[in-house]
């Protein structure tokens, strides 16, 4: 297993595009999630220019335990950047035909897919590690009255975040295996949510099928989005789901398995 991961990393670590994209991902992820409070302060200062006041400390954006869901939901937006790296990594293998040579050299097709999946796992773990660090540092800075038990409330979102990233990277990998061209794959990847939304809107028109609305949660991209619900409505006095739903986790894990299995199936049957 480790050997396969090393092989895939060896392909990447001398590839400048890999470092640029991953670097941009972690830097923008880090800075943007960590600087939310500064942005709030800036907004507050603008409010003061107009004579009204906004007490930023009354919005517990960075307070334990809210901070977990807030930052993790926001960080989820960046996974597209990481998934583009995954697409480039797999479509390069088709474009340069190195996939063919890897198999000739004695990799099995299963090992090849596994090496890519392992890299996806590593990238997901690194994202989680990054988030854990940012949450701990900013949470400890901004939480006014620290209650230690509050810190642990919401750590479940870290697990949900891990599944969210890994599921989406698995989806990107599968798309790359099927489409094989980097540009087209990236466009499809970016439009995926839109395409799924169009399908859902047409399938679940209230007038037609009022009773099957619950099926929506089983759609692949919807299932990934459902892992970490949008938290910010709570600051407008609305009820939100502030926990990770077991059903959502189960569905997302099911899709993750299928994405990777489909990649393998496609590769197994193909002449390369």
């Amino acid at each position: 297993m480790l050997h396969l991961l090393k092989i895939d990393l060896k392909k990447m670590t001398s590839y400048r595009t890999f470092w640029v994209i991953c670097g941009l991902y972690f830097i923008t992820l880090g800075f943007s999630t960590a600087s939310g409070m500064e942005i709030l302060k800036w907004i507050a200062s603008k409010f003061e220019d107009f004579g009204s006041s906004l007490n930023v400390n009354r919005i517990p954006l960075y307070h334990f335990p809210d901070i977990w869901q807030n930052l993790i939901w926001f960080s989820g937006l960046f996974k597209l950047v990481l998934s583009i790296m995954v697409v480039i990594s797999i479509t390069n293998e088709y474009q340069y035909r190195t996939l063919r040579q890897n198999i000739i050299d004695g990799m099995s097709r299963f090992e090849f897919v596994l090496s890519k999946v392992l890299t996806n796992l590593l990238l997901s773990v690194m994202s989680v590690g990054m988030l854990l660090l940012i949450v701990m540092v900013t949470g400890l800075i901004y939480t006014p009255e620290l209650i230690w038990s509050d810190i642990l409330v919401g750590t479940e979102f870290l697990l949900a975040y891990f599944i969210e990233i890994f599921a989406f990277l698995s989806y990107a990998l599968m798309l790359g295996v099927f489409v094989q061209r980097s540009g087209l794959t990236i466009v499809l990847l970016m439009l995926s949510h839109m395409i799924e939304a169009i399908i859902k809107v047409n399938l679940f028109r209230e007038s037609l099928n009022p009773s099957i609305g619950w099926l929506k949660q089983f759609f692949p991209l919807e299932s990934i989005t459902n892992l970490v619900p949008l938290p910010f409505a709570r600051y407008a006095f609305q009820e939100i789901q502030d926990y990770v739903s077991i059903t959502a986790v189960a569905i997302a894990l099911g899709w993750t398995f299928l994405f990777n299995y489909f990649s393998y199936l496609k590769l197994k049957k193909a002449d390369i």
Binding site: K11, S14, Y15, R16, Y96, R97, T98, R100, Q101
Partner: peptide, 8 residues
């Protein structure tokens, strides 16, 4: 020949 063009 098939190789990674960006590698030495």
């Amino acid at each position: 020949p098939i190789f990674y063009p960006y590698l030495s």
